[in-house]
C-alpha cells in the first residue's frame, strides 16, 4: 500500500506539464542597434517557481503567431530568460507565448503577450497659409 502511494506520488512528480510557467511574459518593441536598423521585439519572462532551479535545468521555448492563439514554435533551447526577436516586420502584429522545458517535460504556456508594429496613421488635411 505504501509502495503504491509512493508510486503515485512519483508519477505526479514526473508527469509532464506538471509545472506551471507562472512567469509574466513581457514584450517591448525597440529600434534595432544592428546596422540596417528596423525594429526588434525584446521578450523577457521569469523562471517558473517550481520545476526550474540549479538542479533542475530549464530551457525555454518561444511561440509566435500573427493572431491571438495562433502561436507556433519560433525557437527552443533558450537558456536565458529573455530573447530578442529580430525577425519582425514593421506594420505587422505579433503574439507570443513561452514555455519552460526541463528533463521531465514542458510547462504549460505562459500568458500571451503581443506587439503591434503598425505604422501610425499619417496626419491629413495639411494647409499652409502665408501670414504677412
Amino acid at each position: 500500500m505504501r509502495k503504491l502511494a509512493l508510486l503515485f506520488a512519483m508519477a505526479l512528480l514526473l508527469a509532464p506539464a506538471s509545472f506551471a510557467q507562472s512567469a509574466q511574459l513581457r514584450t517591448k518593441v525597440v529600434k534595432r542597434k544592428a546596422p540596417g536598423s528596423g525594429l526588434q521585439v525584446n521578450l523577457s519572462w521569469n523562471a517558473p517557481n517550481v520545476g526550474c532551479s540549479v538542479s533542475e535545468v530549464c530551457t525555454y521555448a518561444i511561440y509566435r503567431g500573427p493572431t491571438s492563439g495562433s502561436e507556433v514554435l519560433l525557437i527552443s533551447g533558450i537558456t536565458a530568460t529573455n530573447y530578442q526577436d529580430i525577425g519582425v516586420v514593421s506594420g505587422d502584429s505579433y503574439f507570443y507565448e513561452t514555455t519552460a522545458v526541463n528533463v521531465i517535460g514542458q510547462s504549460v504556456y505562459s500568458n500571451e503577450a503581443s506587439v503591434n508594429l503598425a505604422l501610425p496613421g499619417p496626419p491629413t488635411g495639411l494647409t499652409a497659409v502665408p501670414a504677412p
Binding site: 501610425p120 499619417p122 491629413t124 497659409v129
Partner: peptide, 23 residues
C-alpha cells in the same frame, strides 16, 4: 510642406501627409 508623425513608444514613423503649398 509636408507633415508626418512619430509614435512615442516604438519610434515608428508615419507616411507623409498631403503636400501644402505656400506662396
Amino acid at each position: 510642406y509636408v507633415v508626418n508623425c512619430r509614435e512615442l513608444n516604438d519610434n515608428q514613423i508615419s507616411k507623409y501627409s498631403n503636400q501644402a503649398k505656400a506662396v
